[in-house]
Design a protein around this nucleic acid. Structure first.
Length: 798
DNA sequence: AGCACGCCGACT
DNA sequence: GTCGGCGTGCTC
C-alpha cells in the first residue's frame, strides 16, 4: 500500500502530496490523518497521511518507505483533511500550515539536530569521548565548542548527523497506588522493628485495604515519602502503576450547578428561530445591544443541541475569554465543557483537546483555534462578538474563524450563530440581503436603561486652559462616583499613544535603527524597545542628536495616566491593566477579580478591558480619547471606533445602579462618535456603508492585500510595480488595483515593505491568478531575497 | 525550507 | 595543492 503524505516543509515546490511505501507490518495500522516520520531528501521530517492508495504515478522503485507511524489513532479526521484543502485555496496558504493549525501545538513536531556515534567510542578523537560517555548521541546545541572535531569524524563516518523529531509535550501520567485487598496478605508482611515509616504506612494500608489512591494523595494522608511506598510495594503490600491524567487548567473547582434563567420575550423569539433550524446549515446574526442577554441565548440553544446528542463550539475573542464566561458555561454544563484559550500551557491545551477527541466533553469554549475542535457530531457553532478582528489569524494560514465555522456548518448541516452588539459591516450587510437571518434584541435583559453618554469636546477644554488629560466633567464625575463608593473604569485607547522620547531642543524622536518606527519607553525594564523587531537600548539621558539635556517622555501610556490620576483624585485605589501588568499567567483574571471584589476604586486599562467586564458596582466609564483609532489610515477606522465606544460604554450600569459614560474627543462631531453615544447602530451602518461604497471597500468590494519585502528599496518597489502590471493584465477590467505604495511602516528589521491592493466584486480567476503570481515569485524573486505574502480579506490594510 | 553538489579564490 | 564561498537543483 502507498500513502500520500503532506510533509512538514513550508515551501512552494513542496506544497503537494509525496508518495511513500507503507511497510508491510504498518499496513493494518496506517490511516489518513495520522502523523508519520518520513525520509525526505537526506533528512527526516514529520508529515500527515492524507490518503491511501494501491498504486503510484511515481517510479515505484524509487518510493521510500514510511519510517515511523507517530499515532495509533489519527489526529485529524476526514473532515479536517478536507477542510485543510479548502483552507489552502481560500487563504492561499501551504497545506501543511493548514493541517498544523488544526492540531494542538503539543502535537506539532520539534526538530533537534544531533550527532550520533556510529563506531566504538575508542574510534573517535580523544577530546570528543567525554561527550559520548554513556550515550550514543549529542545534541548539536550542546556541542558548539567541538564542531570542528565532529566535522572531521563525520568525514570518517564514525559520527553521523541526524535530526530527532519529537512532539512538544507528552501525556501527563500520575502514579497510582493500589493497596492489596487481602488483609491476611498485609498481616503477613514482615517489617523490621526500626523501620518506623514502613510500620506507619502498613497500618494505613490495613485500614485502607483494596483502595486505589494517587501517590501524592497517599503521601499526604499517610505522612510518608515515596521510597517507603516502594519498599512496601516490593513486599507485596501494594502495586504501583502509571495512569494517564489531565492537567486541570481552569482552577474552577466546586462550581455550583445553576438552572437556566427565564428568557424575555425577545430572547425567546430569537431562541425559537435558532431552535427551529438546528439541523440546517443556516447562519444567524444575533444583533443585541450590550447587556441584552445574548449569553443566556447561547447557553440555552447549546442545551438544546446537547439534548439532541450533538456537540457545540462556542468561540469568544482572544483575551476576553473572561473567567465570567467560563464560569457561566461550567455552571450550566459542568464537566461537559472543555476550555481552550491562550492562557493555557501547551500541555493543558493538549489535554483539553484530547477530551474533545475522545468525546468526553460536548461543549468547547475557546478562542479562534477552537473552531478546529475535532467534534464529529457538531450541532451548533457560536461566535460571540463576531466583529472582533482576533477571529482572523494575522499570520499564515490567515484564516477567519467565521469562514471556517460556516464551512463546518455545511459539513455537519448545523447552524452558525454570530452574536454582537456592533456587528461587522460585512455580516450586517449579509443579514440585510437575507444571506444570514437577522435576530434582534433591542432591550437590555434586566430592562435597565442604556447608560447616559456625554461627549466632551477636548478642544474646548484646551481653549479654557485645561491642558491635562482629564476634562473638568470627567474629573468631577470620578470624584462623585468615588464619594458614592461606586467604581470607575477608565479606558485609554492605546494605539498611537505609547510613550516615545522626544528632544525638546531639536525635535528628535528616538527611532529604531532597523525599522521606520519610534522606540517605546518601557519603565519596568528601563529600556527603549522596538515593538516590531524587538531591538532595545538603554534610555538616553541626553539627546543622541544634539546632546541637549532637554529630552522628555511623550505620549500617554497607562502609567502616565495613573500618575495624573493621583493628582485628580488623591488617595484613590487604582488598578492598572495593560500589557505590562498582565504579562504573567493568570494576571488578567487576578486583576479583574480584585476589582470585582471591590479592592480598587478605579480600573484603568487599554483595549483589553473593553470586553466582558460585568460588575454591578461600575457606574462611570471614562474614555480618555475617542479619536486615536479614528484617524488611523485604515478603512475600518470608523467601524472600530464605533465598536470600541459602544463596547466600553456597555460596561457601565449593568445592574441596578444607573451608569454614565464620559467620552473625551478632539473630533466630537464625527458620526462614529455621535452615533455610538446612543448605540444607534442602523444609522451608523447606513452612513458607514455609504463611505465604503464611495471608497470601494468591503462589504461592497472584496479586498486582497499583497505585501512585498526586500533589503533594497528599489528592488522591492520594482517587484511591486511588476505585480501591479501583471494583475492589471490578468484580472477583469472592473477590478481595481491600488498601488504599489510603501507600507505604513515602510521598513521593519532592515527590510523595505511595499504593498498593493486588489479590490474586486467578482473575480472568478482570482485564485488561479494568485497561484500564477506565486509561481513568478518562486521562480524569479524568491532567490533574489524577496518575500511575498497574500492576505485575502484582510481585517485592515495598514 | 534544508541540504548536497559543484565550480572558482586565499590560505596551510 | 586544500578549505570554503554561495549559485543551482532536488526532495516521493
Amino acid at each position: 500500500m502507498i500513502a500520500e503524505v503532506i510533509v512538514d516543509v513550508a515551501a512552494h515546490p513542496i506544497d503537494r502530496p509525496f508518495d511513500y511505501a507503507i511497510p508491510k507490518h504498518l499496513e493494518v495500522l496506517a490511516e489518513p490523518g495520522m502523523r508519520v516520520k518520513v525520509p525526505f531528501g537526506n533528512r527526516k521530517v514529520l508529515g500527515f497521511i492524507t490518503d491511501l492508495k494501491e498504486t503510484s504515478e511515481f517510479d515505484p522503485t524509487r518510493l521510500k518507505p514510511i519510517h515511523e507511524l507517530m499515532d495509533v489513532v489519527p489526529v485529524l479526521n476526514k473532515e479536517m483533511l478536507e477542510m485543510a484543502k479548502w483552507m489552502k485555496e481560500q487563504t492561499v496558504c501551504f497545506e501543511i500550515d493548514a493541517l498544523k493549525v488544526m492540531i494542538p501545538a503539543a502535537l506539532r513536531a520539534k526538530y533537534e539536530k544531533r550527532f550520533v556515534l556510529n563506531a566504538p567510542l575508542e574510534a573517535i578523537a580523544e577530546p570528543l569521548r567525554p561527550y559520548f560517555k554513556d550515550k550514543t548521541f549529542l545534541k548539536a546545541q550542546e556541542a558548539v565548542e567541538v564542531y570542528a572535531l565532529l566535522k572531521k569524524e563525520m568525514t570518517n563516518g564514525t559520527i553521523i548527523a541526524d535530526t530527532d523529531i519529537s512532539q512538544q509535550t507528552a501525556v501527563k501520567k500520575v502514579k497510582m497506588i493500589h493497596i492489596t485487598e487481602s488483609l491476611e496478605q498485609l498481616e503477613a508482611i514482615d517489617v523490621r522493628a526500626n523501620a518506623k515509616q514502613q510500620i506507619k504506612l502498613l497500618a494505613y494500608f490495613k485500614k485502607n485495604s483494596g483502595r486505589t489512591i494517587e501517590a501524592s494523595q497517599l503521601q499526604k494522608e499517610a505522612g510518608v515519602t515515596l521510597p517507603t511506598v516502594y519498599s512496601l510495594a516490593e513486599k507485596g503490600a501494594a502495586t504501583i502503576s502509571n495512569m494517564e491524567s489531565y492537567r486541570d487548567p481552569t482552577l474552577l473547582t466546586d462550581i455550583e450547578k445553576k438552572e437556566f434563567l427565564q428568557l424575555t420575550d425577545a430572547q425567546q423569539t430569537a431562541f425559537n428561530a435558532i431552535d427551529a433550524a438546528l439541523n440546517t446549515p443556516k447562519t444567524f446574526l444575533l444583533h443585541g445591544i450590550t447587556g441584552s442577554g445574548k449569553t443566556e441565548i447561547y447557553l440555552q440553544t447549546i442545551d438544546q443541541v446537547l439534548k439532541e446528542g450533538k456537540e457545540a463550539i462556542m468561540l469568544v475573542p482572544e483575551i476576553s475569554l473572561t473567567p465570567q464566561m467560563t464560569i457561566r458555561f461550567k455552571e450550566r454544563f459542568g464537566d461537559m465543557v472543555a476550555v481552550l484559550h491562550s492562557g493555557l500551557s501547551a500541555g493543558e491545551k493538549y489535554d483539553e483537546w484530547r477530551k474533545i477527541q475522545r468525546h468526553e466533553v460536548k461543549v468547547v469554549v475557546g478562542a479562534r483555534s477552537a473552531i478546529f475542535a475535532p467534534f464529529e457530531n457538531l450541532g451548533l457553532i457560536i461566535l460571540d462578538e463576531e466583529h472582533e478582528s482576533s477571529y482572523k489569524q494575522d499570520d499564515s494560514p490567515r484564516y477567519h474563524a467565521r469562514d471556517m465555522a460556516i464551512w463546518r456548518s455545511e459539513y455537519h448541516s448545523c447552524p452558525v450563530l454570530l452574536g454582537s452588539a456592533t456587528p461587522s459591516l460585512e455580516s450586517y450587510a449579509r443579514a440585510q440581503k437575507g444571506v444570514y437571518e437577522l435576530l434582534v434584541l433591542e432591550q437590555r435583559a434586566k430592562n435597565q436603561p442604556l447608560p447616559s453618554v456625554e461627549i466632551v469636546d477636548m478642544r474646548e477644554e484646551l481653549r479654557r486652559g485645561n491642558r491635562s488629560m482629564f476634562s473638568v466633567q470627567l474629573a468631577d464625575a470620578i470624584r462623585e462616583s468615588l464619594e458614592r463608593k461606586e467604581q470607575v473604569v477608565l479606558f485609554l485607547n492605546k494605539r498611537g499613544y505609547s510613550s516615545f522620547v522626544l528632544c525638546r531642543d531639536c525635535g528628535t524622536v528616538m527611532q529604531c535603527p532597523n525599522c521606520d518606527i519610534s522606540l517605546t519607553y518601557h519603565r519596568s525594564s528601563e529600556l527603549m524597545r522596538c515593538h516590531y523587531c524587538g531591538h532595545d537600548e538603554p534610555v538616553p539621558h541626553i539627546c543622541p542628536e544634539c546632546t541637549s539635556e532637554h529630552i522628555r517622555f511623550f505620549g500617554t501610556g497607562t502609567q502616565k495616566v495613573e500618575e495624573e490620576l493621583a493628582k485628580v483624585v488623591p488617595g484613590a485605589r487604582v488598578l492598572r491593566m495593560d500589557v505590562d501588568t498582565t504579562r504573567n499567567k493568570g494576571a488578567h483574571e487576578k486583576i479583574l477579580s480584585a476589582f470585582g471584589e471591590g479592592k480598587a476604586d478605579i480600573l484603568l486599562g487599554t483595549q483589553m478591558i473593553a470586553k466582558g467586564l460585568d460588575f454591578p458596582n461600575i457606574t462611570l466609564v471614562g474614555v480618555l480619547s475617542a479619536d486615536t483609532t479614528l484617524h488611523l489610515p485604515d478603512f475600518r477606522a470608523a467601524e472600530k471606533t464605533y465598536q470600541l465606544l459602544t463596547q466600553v460604554s456597555g460596561r457601565a450600569g449593568r445592574d441596578v445602579l444607573p451608569g454614565s459614560v464620559i467620552v473625551q474627543s478632539y473630533t466630537p462631531e464625527h458620526y462614529a462618535i455621535i452615533l455610538a453615544k446612543d448605540q444607534l447602530y442602523e444609522p451608523f451602518f447606513d452612513q458607514e456603508m455609504a463611505m465604503r461604497r464611495a471608497s470601494g471597500y468591503p462589504p461592497y468590494y472584496y479586498v486582497v492585500n499583497i505585501q512585498f519585502t526586500h533589503e533594497d528599496l528599489m528592488t522591492v518597489a520594482g517587484y511591486a510595480e511588476q505585480t501591479v502590471r501583471y494583475l492589471s493584465s490578468q484580472l477583469s477590467p472592473n477590478t481595481l488595483i491600488i498601488g504599489p505604495s510603501a507600507s505604513l511602516i515602510a521598513r521593519v528589521n532592515n527590510r523595505y515593505r511595499y504593498q498593493c491592493l486588489i479590490k474586486y466584486k467578482k473575480e472568478p480567476k482570482l485564485t488561479e491568478v494568485m497561484q500564477q503570481l506565486i509561481k513568478i515569485y518562486r521562480t524569479e524573486w524568491l532567490k533574489k531575497g524577496a518575500t511575498l505574502s497574500i492576505d485575502m480579506n484582510p481585517t485592515s490594510v495598514m
